[in-house]
Amino acid sequence: PQECLLLEPGLNEIMANSLDYNERLWAWESWRSEVGKQLRPLYEEYVVLKNEMARANHYEDYGDYWRGDYEVNGVDGYDYSRGQLIEDVEHTFEEIKPLYEHLHAYVRAKLMNAYPSYISPIGCLPAHLLGDMWGRFWTNLYSLTVPFGQKPNIDVTDAMVDQAWDAQRIFKEAEKFFVSVGLPNMTQGFWENSMLTDPGNVQKAVCHPTAWDLGKGDFRILMCTKVTMDDFLTAHHEMGHIQYDMAYAAQPFLLRNGANEGFHEAVGEIMSLSAATPKHLKSIGLLSPDFQEDNETEINFLLKQALTIVGTLPFTYMLEKWRWMVFKGEIPKDQWMKKWWEMKREIVGVVEPVPHDETYCDPASLFHVSNDYSFIRYYTRTLYQFQFQEALCQAAKHEGPLHKCDISNSTEAGQKLFNMLRLGKSEPWTLALENVVGAKNMNVRPLLNYFEPLFTWLKDQNKNSFVGWSTDWSPYADQSIKVRISLKSALGDKAYEWNDNEMYLFRSSVAY
C-alpha cells in the first residue's frame, strides 16, 4: 500500500478484514516500526519515573501501586492483599488454560486453511493473523472459523447495514437495554456533547472508545462508531461505564469510582452478554423472526463469544505479567523485547512474524500501555462479568443454560445491579461482590459453565490435532529472506536491522 494510513481508520481495517498475509505483515510491522521505536526511549523513562512515584508513596514499584486498587484492609472477613491478586490471577488462569488451548488448536487448523504454508500444525499462531493489530481480540476471525457456515449468520453486521443503522441508532438501542432493566436514560448533555462518529477531516481524533465523567452531571462517550456488531456491543460496554458513573455520582468525590477497576469494566460487559444472544437480537429485529436455535447455532454463537472473551485472556494476563516484571526490575532493559516474545510464545501461543530487536517497544504500540492504563482490569472484569451475569440471571428468573440468558426487561436484575453500582468505592469490593453474587472472591466457574458446550465440542473437533504449541517454530524461518527484502523496500531505514548471520545468508542466496 502506498497511501498514508492512520491506525483508525486504515490500518485497523486491514487487520480486521485482509486475507493477504503480506499486506497484514506490512501493516503490523509498519505500526510497530513507526510507533514502537519512537516510544522506546520514552517508555524507558516512564518506567523509571513511575517507579519513583510509587516508591515515594510506600509501594514496592509501580506494578505494586496498580495492584493496590484491589487492596482491602481493616474490614474483618473482607480483607484482600496485593499479593493475593497475583495468586488469584495465576490460579484462575491455570483453570482457563485447557479451554484456551483447545480454542487455540481449532483456530490454528482454520488458519492453516486460510494461509497454507504459513502455519505450523504444532506451532504458535503468527501475531499478525489474529483479527486486530495486537491479536487482543480474535472476533474478526469468526468468518474464517465459523463451525456451521450453512446456518444463518449470528454476526448481524450485514443486517445492521441493510437496515441503515447508524451510530445514533446503535447508542439508542444500548440505552433502551439499560432503561429496560430500570436504569436511567442518558442525559441530554450526553447526546449533545458526545463524539460518536469519526469527525473525519474536520479534526484529528483519538478513536479508541472511551467513556468520560467530567463532573457536575456531564457524561460523554468518545467513539468513532462503525456499523458493525462489534461496535454495537462496544456501545453497551461504554454506556455501562456511564451508568456506573451516574449511579455513584451522589457519593463524596473520592468515592466516585468503581469498587475496583475490574468492576467498572465488567458492568457494560454484562449487558453485552445479553445483547449478543440470538434471543435479544431477534427481539430488536437484527435476526429474522423465523431464526431457529439448535445445537449448531448454539456452537456458532459460543465460538463467536469465545473468540472475543476466551481468546483475549492469555493476551491480557501475559501483557500485565510482563509489565509487573519490568517494574519490579526482573527483566533487564536490554532484554525487554526478547522476554516479551518469549512470554508471548510460552503463555499465549503466539509468535512474532519477524524478529524484533531491542530498538522496538511492541507493548507500547497498544493504546492502554502508552496511555498508562493498568491492564489486569480486563482479566478480572471477565471473571466478574460471568459471576455477575449468573447472579443477575437468577434474579431475572432465567431457566436454562447461562449462555442463553438475556436480562433485558428484568427490573429485578437491574435493581440488584444498581444497588452495587451506587456504592461506588464506599464499600470494599469484596463486600460489594458478595452482595451481588454471594461470594467475595473472583471465581472462574461461571465462565467455564457458560462455555461448557463449546469446550465439549472443541475436544471432539481436536481429537486428531495437536493441542498446545511448540515454541520453537517461527513463521519467518522458511520465508525470512523474502520477508526481509520486502520489508526493507517498504520501510527503508526503519526496517529491522539484519545481523551478520542474516546478511551472510542473504549474500549466499543471491550468489547461489
Rank of each mutant, 00 (worst) to 15 (best):
G215R: 14
I309Q: 13
H237I: 11
S374F: 10
H208P: 00
G217D: 03
P252Q: 06
G215K: 15
F219W: 03
D230M: 07
G215E: 03
H368W: 06
E261S: 09
G217M: 02
T210D: 10
H368I: 08
G217P: 01
M246W: 01
M229Y: 11
E261W: 08
T210N: 09
A249W: 02
Y378D: 12
F253P: 03
D218S: 00
N153M: 10
R136G: 08
T187Q: 13
H241Q: 13
Q251G: 04
T308A: 10
T234R: 10
Q188Y: 13
G215V: 04
T308D: 10
T139G: 11
P209R: 02
S374H: 08
Q305I: 02
Q305G: 09
R136V: 08
T187C: 06
T210R: 07
L214W: 01
S272I: 09
F375R: 06
V206E: 04
L214T: 00
T308Q: 13
K216R: 03
G217H: 04
N153W: 09
M229H: 08
E192D: 13
G189N: 02
A249N: 05
H241E: 14
L214M: 14
D213M: 02
R256V: 02
T234E: 07
R256Y: 01
F253H: 01
E261H: 05
D230N: 13
L214K: 00
G189A: 02
R220D: 00
H241W: 08
K216Q: 02
T139A: 10
T234C: 11
V206K: 06
F253E: 01
R220V: 00
E192S: 06
Y373N: 11
W212P: 00
Q188L: 08
D230S: 12
D213Q: 01
R256W: 00
F375E: 10
F367P: 11
R381L: 06
E269D: 10
Q305E: 11
T210F: 06
D230P: 08
A250V: 12
R377M: 08
W212R: 04
T308H: 13
H237P: 02
R381Q: 08
P252C: 07
S374G: 11
F219N: 05
N257P: 02
F253I: 04
M246L: 05
R256H: 12
D372P: 02
Q251D: 00
G189D: 00
N153P: 08
E192A: 13
R220S: 01
F219D: 02
N153S: 11
F367D: 08
M246A: 05
D372K: 07
A250W: 14
H208D: 09
D372R: 04
S374A: 10
K304Q: 13
F253Q: 03
T308E: 09
F219G: 00
Q188E: 10
N153T: 12
D213K: 09
L233Y: 10
K216I: 00
D372C: 03
M229Q: 08
Y373D: 10
E265H: 10
D218R: 00
E192Y: 04
D230V: 12
E265D: 07
F375C: 07
R381K: 10
E261Y: 08
N153F: 07
E192I: 06
W212N: 01
M229W: 11
K216Y: 02
D230L: 10
S374M: 09
R136F: 06
A250E: 12
Y378T: 12
N257Y: 14
R256A: 14
V206Q: 11
H368S: 12
R381W: 07
K304W: 09
T187G: 05
T308I: 07
P209G: 06
F367I: 07
E192G: 06
H241V: 13
W212K: 04
N193R: 02
S272P: 07
F253R: 03
A249Y: 03
P252R: 02
R220I: 00
F137Q: 12
M229I: 10
R377H: 10
F219T: 01
S374L: 05
N257C: 12
P209A: 11
K304T: 11
Q251C: 12
L214A: 07
D372L: 01
N193I: 04
F137P: 11
G215A: 13
M229N: 02
M229R: 09
N193K: 04
N193A: 05
M229K: 11
I309H: 10
G189H: 00
Q305P: 03
R220F: 00
T234G: 06
L233A: 05
E261F: 09
T308S: 10
T308W: 08
Y373P: 05
F301I: 10
H368K: 10
V206N: 08
T210A: 10
A250R: 09
V206W: 06
T234Q: 09
N140S: 10
I309T: 13
T308V: 08
H241I: 08
W212C: 04
H208G: 05
E261K: 12
H208S: 09
I309P: 01
Q305S: 06
G215M: 14
D213V: 02
S374V: 11
F219L: 04
Q188V: 11
N140I: 05
E265M: 10
M246P: 00
L233Q: 13
E261C: 11
N140H: 13
Q188I: 10
D218V: 01
F137R: 11
G215S: 14
Q251M: 05
N257M: 11
F375Y: 11
R381A: 13
Q305W: 04
V206G: 03
K304F: 12
Y378R: 09
R136C: 07
Y373F: 11
Q251F: 01
G217F: 01
T187F: 04
E265I: 06
R377G: 08
H241L: 14
T139Y: 06
N193V: 05
H368T: 07
D230Q: 10
F137S: 08
K216F: 02
T187W: 02
H208C: 06
F219C: 03
W212L: 02
H241Y: 08
A250Y: 14
Q251A: 06
R136L: 09
G189F: 00
H208I: 11
N153R: 10
R377I: 06
M229V: 09
S272F: 07
H241M: 09
G189T: 02
N140Q: 10
R136K: 12
D213H: 04
H368G: 10
Y373I: 11
